[in-house]
Design a binder for these strands. Structure first.
Lengths: 252, 252
DNA sequence: CTTGACCTTGACGTAACGTCAAGTTCTACC
DNA sequence: GGTAGAACTTGACGTTACGTCAAGGTCAAG
């Protein structure tokens, strides 16, 4: 129950350097310092060390850990605050990934990747399994036939239309326009018209529940970062949703 | 076409400090340095600066940007390498988030958070809009009634069962077990049995397409990071999918 | 007494700048 | 021409959580 710095480091799965660092910070002082300056630790120190390391693995900063250990901060509350930051970071990463992917496909002239990923390009941002899950395997197959039937030029045109919509939505969202203003509503109209070009969806079926479909899609754009990335991230997705909602309520 | 350091900084949306930094690194030298030491830039420098800032927004490091700009590295290749790192980071974050959430619910004894977030805890990892989209508003409402009908203790039990499944899947995936081995198949069986407890899903309906449903869910776990987070990240999700697929093919 | 193993403090490096600090130069106005 | 204020310069510290030498003291074994 009296360990040297190396011993306790190995016990806890860390390094002696880290222990000296925590000592410097006042986060974990040695139980006893011998006359020769050597640090010694007991099992209470080990327990404290293990709590520190656990919280660190969760991504908390050392100052936050110190607060929790001193009892001056509630552990659950600290973790929830931390969770918020983690989610933000995750969103940032998702947006960055989408941008990098877009840049790469742009760089490659949109050639090779398109053939493979275009079906992922839009509501086709969706994976096959999800499409089947949502609308059934039959609808997926119908969409696939339609897509291949477009031919090279048709696919190119469709993709251009898709990209233009994405660009215009992003620009509109960033301009701070009102979602229920004239410009945004014009975009929403274009969006719905464009949606009716996708067979197998309610929007394409005469008598289909277009309104419910559009409302649901808007919510999904916000809920799923893969969708939102096409519209300039979270804020963009919320803008699109609000614009679509306003349009659907008024026109559909 | 001859800007001072402040002017070009504003034009490009950055700061003069950053420009001096890039000068120090040799990343972007001023076009001309006057006798008084003042830095001056022309439009070619502006173009280069804008490329730098664009790549930086994508998350590339300055050394990598330098390589791309010097032509000693292929831009697309650099971005794809970067993309790999971004995806790794995202996975790490997802795992950390899952751990933090698990820790919080453990801390709170599964009390308060459950009421609000439990409906997101499961295939209820899904947002309301998505559930409605996939199974219809009626199914959502049925599920909601069922959930509230469970009462406090029932909800606690359900949550414990869910958490146990998540833990066991994660552990199994990390142990390097074979997805079609006995242990994984036992887990898959438990998973399917657990699914049948959720009303409104095909699995709960006698005569429903359980096999297709299970296969689709597996794919979705892989495709959507929000699902994968419950099973130890991307690798865990793939393990779950493979195990479920093997089980479905054999037993359903 | 020597040789390692282990310990100490001190200090630099990490990514990309933000933020003073101290000193020089330019511009405008009196 | 003098002066205030704006803009510019180089230099250097701070940021996160330690890793990694460097130089030197201590301890157990042979």
């Amino acid at each position: 129950m009296d360990w040297s710095i190396q011993e306790i480091a190995k016990l806890a799965g860390t390094t002696s350097r880290t222990l000296r660092h925590y000592d410097d910070l006042g986060l974990l002082a040695p139980t006893r310092v011998a006359g020769n300056g050597y640090r010694h630790y007991d099992e209470r120190a080990l327990v404290r060390l293990q709590r520190i390391l656990l919280l660190r693995e969760l991504g908390l900063g050392l100052p936050a850990i110190a607060e929790v250990l001193e009892g001056s901060a509630d552990e659950a509350r600290a973790l929830e605050a931390h969770l918020g930051w983690l989610r933000q970071e995750q969103g940032r990463l998702a947006r960055q990934i989408a941008s990098v992917e877009k840049t790469i496909t742009a760089l490659e002239g949109g050639e090779r990747l398109m053939a493979d990923e275009m079906f992922d390009g839009f509501d086709h941002t969706v994976h096959r399994a999800e499409v089947e899950q949502r609308w059934g395997a039959e609808a997926y197959a119908a969409g696939d036939r339609w897509w291949r039937g477009l031919g090279e030029t048709g696919q190119r045109e469709w993709k251009a239309r898709t990209a233009a919509l994405s660009r215009d939505w992003t620009a509109a969202a960033e301009s701070g326009l009102a979602p229920d203003g004239a410009e945004a509503q014009a975009l929403a109209k274009r969006h719905v018209e464009w949606l009716t070009g996708v067979p197998g969806t309610p929007a394409a079926v005469p008598g289909g529940d277009v309104k419910g479909y559009v409302l649901g899609l808007g919510e999904m754009y916000v809920a799923d970062p893969r969708f939102g990335a096409n519209y300039g991230g979270q804020a963009g997705a919320e803008f699109v949703r609000d614009a679509l909602r306003a349009y659907a309520e008024r026109e559909l």
